[in-house]
């Protein structure tokens, strides 16, 4: 494993930790999109079907289980926890799942590395992950007061994507057979979605003012 990949996994993990911290200790999910969290739960469930088939390493298995468990427990907290669910900004989180899920499923049926159930599910998870942040970004734009933890959560998620691209560039030069167009193209699209957010996040940090996205 190269350093970019490890750093990418760690920022991804950190984003989940930040979100769990907010939910678990502050008992608030204000500014967090349930739609995005549900989409991530679907992404991990579809991608990690290989847990039953492949064993890569202990690290790999543990990380996959952590992402599965954390994504489902976040959804549970936002929907069922009696205190947390009251902080959910339902009125502004209006993005519809099927707008993202159906095109991704269709695309996965058309463009995949092999037409098997697992490969189609893998491609579907890659496409869906690329756009799953969309409801969250829309919600941020509608939120007047974006708290620090929410800003950091999205920042770490974006950082994870940037680091994964550096990881692919590294792997491309060190492992000649490592070419996965599907994940590369989807990954670049996914990273570009954060570009706007990054700009405002860094600006707010530089000028020491509260993060706010223009409508």
């Amino acid at each position: 494993m190269n350093v970019f990949r490890l750093a990418g996994d760690m920022t991804h993990l950190l984003s989940v930790v930040v979100l769990l911290l907010k939910i678990h200790t502050i008992k608030s999910c204000a500014g967090i999109s349930l739609k995005t969290q549900e989409l991530y739960a679907v992404v991990f469930a579809a991608r990690y079907l290989d847990l039953f088939v492949h064993f890569v390493s202990l690290y790999n298995t543990v990380m996959k289980l952590v992402f599965l468990a954390s994504s489902f427990s976040i959804v549970w907290y936002m929907k069922r926890h009696k205190i947390v669910r009251r902080t959910y900004d339902k009125d502004h989180d209006t993005f519809r799942h099927y707008v993202l899920v159906l095109p991704c499923l269709l695309l996965a049926l058309l463009i995949n590395e092999k037409f098997t159930f697992r490969e189609v599910m893998w491609a579907f998870s890659i496409y869906l992950e690329a756009v799953a942040i969309f409801p969250q970004l829309v919600l941020l734009q509608r939120t007047r007061n974006i708290d620090n933890l929410t800003g950091q959560y999205v920042f770490f998620l974006g950082a994870y994507r940037v680091l994964y691209i550096l990881n692919w560039i590294y792997r491309y030069f060190t492992e000649p057979h490592f070419v996965h167009w599907i994940s590369w193209v989807a990954g670049i699209v996914q990273t570009l979605l954060y570009a706007d957010f990054f700009y405002y996040y860094i600006m707010s940090w530089k000028n020491n003012v509260k993060l706010e996205l223009p409508a």
Partner: peptide, 10 residues
């Protein structure tokens, strides 16, 4: 192989 490399990512 390439297949394994793909599943090694998260």
């Amino acid at each position: 192989d390439s297949e394994d490399a793909k599943h090694d990512e998260l």
